[in-house]
């Protein structure tokens, strides 16, 4: 089955911009704020948000990439080997407001791991979560996002994929109905 486009490139831009304005509304001059993208796919969103914020406000908000692999709760529970991506964080988050950034919020387990992984770099004063797509009603853990691009209803056999201009050639969000397709 062909995947369904649930956010096209035009809507994608609008959502990205809206998320940035929501951040500006909450964080003002971003003097105590850092962005942290969850590897691998959240980093792409984080970078785009950073770039967009720069073009709107002229402020370059510190941005880091956080790998959560070694903090996941499914090690030795899947057939697949869990291998890490790079972590690139060149600041401490002590007393900072951290905005965790990920592309899709689904069970909430990744974000649970991210919160553990993040604490290695200090004790933040507050943590918020920004996601592009929130697959609502599918949470395993009591975790909710502060900023949401779009809420979608989906069932477990479906897969939601955020694609990027830089990686896949076009900004869009797709929904696959079987997990065989890619």
């Amino acid at each position: 089955m062909q995947p369904k486009v649930i956010i096209n490139s035009k809507a994608f831009q609008l959502i990205l911009k809206r998320l940035c304005y929501e951040l500006i509304e909450q964080h003002g001059d971003f003097s105590d704020t850092v962005l942290m993208g969850v590897q691998p796919r959240g980093s792409e969103l984080g970078e785009r948000i950073q770039r967009e914020l720069k073009s709107i406000t002229g402020i370059k908000v510190p941005f880091g990439k956080l790998d959560i692999t070694f903090f996941r709760d499914d090690f030795r529970r899947t057939e697949k080997l869990l291998l890490a991506d790079a972590t690139e964080i060149d600041f401490v988050i002590e007393n900072k407001k951290v905005v965790l950034v990920d592309d899709v919020l689904y069970t909430g387990r990744t974000i649970r791991a991210a919160m553990d992984a993040m604490l290695v770099y200090g004790r933040p004063s507050a943590v918020e979560l920004l996601v592009f797509v929130d697959r609502r009603f599918s949470r395993d853990l009591p975790i909710q996002a502060t900023y949401v691009g779009k809420r979608v209803d989906s069932i477990a056999s479906q897969r939601v994929s955020v694609e990027w201009d830089k990686i896949e050639g076009e900004d869009k969000v797709l929904m696959f109905s079987t997990d065989k397709e890619k």
């Binding site: 070694f70 903090f71 291998l83 890490a84 972590t87 401490v92 553990d116 290695v120």
Partner: peptide, 21 residues
Amino acid sequence: LIFSAADNFKEVINRPIKKVP
């Protein structure tokens, strides 16, 4: 594979908290 994982762990052991669970 071992080298690629070792790259990751080398980064881990240079973090402020050098431990993963």
